[in-house]
């Protein structure tokens, strides 16, 4: 079964994604270098921006937007799993 009739992402779409990613990168750098003293919020902000970038890479560059639902289910499961590991380890260290 060969790669036929599959969706082709245009060069323009790829460039738009790239532009958004660059924008987000500079945003996160400026917040860090020039931003106010965010303390613990700084990690949250940085992670939020990083996750937005990651989603863009996965959704557009990696073609996830156009893949069958099963791929999205699988990826979601992996993320949930990892989130659970983070949560339980956090609970341990927080409540010791």
């Amino acid at each position: 079964m060969e790669n036929k009739n599959e969706h082709i992402t245009s060069y323009k779409e790829h460039f738009s994604t790239y532009a958004a990613l660059i924008l987000l990168t500079f945003m996160t750098v400026f917040i860090s270098v020039f931003g106010a003293d965010l303390r613990t919020l700084s990690v949250a902000t940085a992670m939020l921006i990083a996750t937005t970038k990651a989603t863009a890479v996965a959704y557009y560059f990696m073609h996830m937007k156009y893949e069958p639902k099963i791929y999205k289910v699988m990826l979601a499961t992996v993320i949930i799993l990892f989130a659970f590991f983070m949560m339980m380890i956090t609970i341990d260290y927080l409540t010791r």
Partner: peptide, 11 residues
């Protein structure tokens, strides 16, 4: 092992 109590309950 020294893990926290609340974590132990959940597990």
């Amino acid at each position: 092992s020294g893990m926290s109590g609340p974590a132990a309950y959940i597990f």
